[in-house]
């Protein structure tokens, strides 16, 4: 994939992550599973997924997104 297409893929991914953190398709549903409303389980799983996706983002596109060379040395990094 070329650069702009990869950037668009990330933007699209972030939009999806924001949009479905609230399970709109379960609106009005009051089913309780294992002691919690089903929509709350969805939210818990979704935020877990967000952490994984964010981690992948930091590994692959973090600097490219700022227009920096992705392979550049991390300046001032003491760790």
């Amino acid at each position: 994939m070329d650069r702009s297409r990869r950037d668009l893929t990330w933007i699209f991914t972030f939009v999806i992550l924001v949009a479905f953190a609230v399970p709109w398709f379960l609106w009005g549903t009051g089913t309780v599973i294992a002691g919690l409303p089903v929509w709350l389980w969805w939210h818990i799983g979704w935020l877990g997924l967000c952490s994984v996706v964010f981690y992948l983002f930091t590994r692959t596109a973090w600097n490219r997104g700022m227009g920096l060379d992705p392979g550049r040395q991390e300046n001032g990094d003491r760790r």
Binding site: L36, I44, L47, G48, S51, F54, W62
Partner: peptide, 27 residues
């Protein structure tokens, strides 16, 4: 932040940390 690695790690850990606090407090 000390380095960009600090910012990256914080970014990825953030959703889980938020979840760990808000779910019990509001429940």
């Amino acid at each position: 932040a000390d380095s960009e690695r600090v910012l990256k790690r914080s970014f990825a850990l953030w959703p889980v940390l938020v979840l760990l606090l808000f779910v019990p407090a509001f429940l």
